[in-house]
Write a protein that binds this DNA or RNA. Structure first.
Lengths: 143, 143
DNA sequence: CCTTGACTTGAAGCGCGCTCAAGGGAGTAG
DNA sequence: CTACTCCCTTGAGCGCGCTTCAAGTCAAGG
């Protein structure tokens, strides 16, 4: 039984979710009731895929389900020029920017800490009581 | 009763957590049992603050409590040159890098979508059935 | 003495985002 | 026919990271 469109498994694979998640998203209104084959099985369209990819991208960046529901509801009302919809996206963009800042701060901090590990390790591998020894001709003695 | 060190309230304020969270972190071993005043109340040191700030930074970047526990345990063993400790940090640094990639992708996507909203809105504010009208002399007619 | 307020403890509760279990049906191969 | 695979639905369960509750202790102030 074909009835054009992707099965739930296929769709799950294509957009990196589980079938459970796809049904869940439909249940909570993140996607409109999806088309069905004659046997009642779901059949996803390319439009569904695009929307799911968008949802995935938003979830990946920690947009709460509630917000996504609000946005999805507006979209379903065909409210294409909605100020509310725009505001939701702008707000999320702002939280993304904040997240990036936090992540970059942490990244720098970790670079620093890891560099310390490296230095300690080096001091253990090549113990050098003398200060000046490590300056120039370290690699030459590796073999 | 003073007994040098910060109270739990003060410490919570200083590092942007709640007192509940501080006790919780202590309970689950993220921080070693903290010093006490004579009346049994906790007293936090500057070293505690530094460590808590580090934990906060890691949590802000979605490091799981479990991982932080592993790292804290190594630290408590005084294992300052631990390969495991280094690996934990390097792994987290990698997930941070991945998160940044996802966030930047989403950010770009949102820029694009929001720009579309802007265009739609403009078309509503200044309806222009003629195609060529928007090309050159739009601003001139603003007043 | 009594109240107030900041602290203590252990245990229970909660919101989020899935995730899984149970029970059933339809289509296909052997 | 049986067996297998894939799907369906409803409803419960789970892991995480706190958060709140209940009950108690201690010290200072009126």
């Amino acid at each position: 039984m074909r009835d054009g469109g992707y099965t739930i498994r296929t769709m799950a694979a294509r957009c990196g979710m589980t079938t459970h998640t796809l049904r869940y998203y439909e249940r909570v209104g993140l996607i409109q009731p999806v088309g069905r084959a004659r046997n009642g099985h779901r059949r996803y369209s390319d439009a569904d895929e695009a929307w799911l990819n968008f949802l995935h991208c938003m979830r990946d960046t920690n947009m709460p389900i509630r917000e996504m529901q609000r946005y999805a509801a507006l979209r379903e009302d065909g409210d294409d020029s909605s100020l509310d919809g725009r505001k939701i996206l702008e707000d999320h963009r702002a939280t993304i920017a904040a997240q990036i800042v936090a992540l970059e701060k942490a990244h720098a901090l970790l670079n620093h800490k890891i560099e310390n590990y490296r230095k300690i390790e080096e001091r253990i591998r090549v113990p050098r009581p003398m200060r000046e020894a490590a300056e120039g001709r370290t690699l030459a003695t590796a073999g």
